[in-house]
Amino acid sequence: HGAIPSMSRLGDPYDNAVIESFYKTLKRELMPETRRFSSEKEARNAIFEYIEMFYNTKRMHSTLGYMSPVEYEKIHS
């Protein structure tokens, strides 16, 4: 699919930990094993909606004091 993996230095697995955690959450919450997209456009729209309408605005994050990213930014910007 043309994806280029991001590789850290040997023995340093932490640079991708945050995004790997996000991908795990995305897959678990948006794409259960039974869900299949009929097209790339449908998948892109579903992922965009998940991130912009739920993940950033409503989903609480423990690392942000159980606030959504939008709430955290309002307080800390």
Rank of each mutant, 00 (worst) to 15 (best):
E52V: 04
R9V: 08
E42Q: 05
Y66Q: 11
Y72N: 02
P32G: 07
M31F: 12
D15P: 01
E49V: 14
T63D: 05
K41Q: 12
V70A: 14
A43E: 10
E40L: 15
E71T: 01
N45M: 09
P32C: 06
G65Q: 05
G11N: 11
H1D: 10
E52C: 02
E42H: 03
Y50D: 05
E71H: 00
H76D: 02
S39L: 10
R36E: 10
E33R: 12
S68N: 09
H61W: 04
S21E: 05
E73S: 05
M67E: 06
D15F: 12
R9W: 07
M31H: 07
E52F: 04
E29N: 11
H76G: 07
L26G: 09
G11R: 05
S62Y: 09
Y72Q: 02
Y55C: 02
L64N: 07
A3Q: 04
F22L: 14
K58V: 04
S77L: 14
M31P: 02
S6G: 08
I4W: 01
H61N: 03
H1Y: 02
Y14R: 11
S6Y: 11
I51A: 00
A3Y: 08
S38A: 15
A3H: 06
K24Q: 08
S38R: 15
S62R: 10
A17K: 05
R28D: 14
I19M: 13
R35C: 06
K41A: 15
Y66E: 13
A43C: 14
S6P: 00
N56M: 02
A17M: 11
S77N: 13
S62N: 06
S39H: 09
M67F: 07
N45F: 03
L64D: 04
M53V: 13
I51M: 03
S62V: 09
H61C: 05
S38M: 15
R28P: 02
K41T: 11
M67K: 15
Y23F: 15
R35H: 08
K74T: 13
E71R: 02
P5N: 04
I47T: 01
H61M: 08
V18L: 07
L26P: 05
M7W: 12
K24G: 15
D15W: 09
R36M: 09
D15A: 07
H1K: 12
A46H: 00
S38H: 15
R36D: 03
T57S: 00
R59A: 05
E40Q: 14
S21K: 03
E73F: 08
I51L: 06
Y55P: 01
S38F: 14
G65I: 07
E20S: 00
S68Q: 04
L30Q: 05
S62P: 06
T63H: 03
Y23C: 07
A46G: 01
H61T: 10
L64I: 02
V18A: 13
A43H: 02
Y14A: 13
F54K: 06
E33K: 15
F37S: 01
R44K: 10
K27N: 14
F48K: 04
I19Y: 04
V18I: 09
L64M: 09
N45S: 06
D15M: 07
S38W: 12
M31Q: 13
